[in-house]
Amino acid sequence: MSDLSPAAPTSTIDAGEIAKFEAMAAEWWDLEGKFKPLHMLNPTRLDYITNQIAAEFGRDLDAPAPFEGLRILDIGCGGGLLCEPMARLGATIVGVDAAPRNIPVAQIHAEQSGLTIDYRVGTAEDMAADGEQFDVVLNMEVVEHVADPLAYLTACQQLLKPGGLHICSTINRNPKSFAMAIVGAEYVMRWLPKGTHEWNKFITPDELFDLMRQAGLNPVDRKGFKFNPLGWSWSISDRDLSVNYVTASLKP
């Protein structure tokens, strides 16, 4: 998959813009920079994602290119923090982001990393309308930002082949998640820009399972991403879904 979508061909970006995007790419990929919280969470997210894909498709993570032959879509790909590891594992990966400025940033970093990734500007709904289909749809920290979660999840379902796997993570809605994700992450720690999240858009795991069923998906798993303030690290918890959580669902 080397052809880039015409939405954002590298050639249309002028030299000054490239320097700016290179700086932004450096920022996206700076472990101590403004996306530090995402980098901290990323190994834990990847751990969950890779194990679920390997189990669902019978792949051996010790093999050189375990995800070879799998077509994976990452919605809200940002700077490519998930796309790049998926490409390294051998997957054919498409990264889509509604924010046009993220795409050249991700493309530049992929080129610097020697990876072939199909990055596009767009939305899940657009791609579903185009009839694209994937073995896996990664839908990480997006659903809490969309206007109509059911329509969005329905598009995610349409983007899957039958038997396909949908991984969706988001933030729970309760007083603790308000304190942690909005007061803590946006105001106290300044991890995220103020106004990144609107608490009333957060979705509880039960609500998300209901929405996925309405969208024609069969939910099979939910786990928490738990932040440990002492170790300053994240881990997967089968019991604590009080703030960040992740789900797996299948298209029948």
Partner: peptide
């Protein structure tokens, strides 16, 4: 060889790669 435990069931992979 390996397993992934989901809420609904576990998927176990055996040494001969069957599941």
């Amino acid at each position: 060889r390996a397993m992934v435990a989901r809420d609904s069931h576990a998927i176990v992979t055996l040494t001969d790669r069957t599941q």
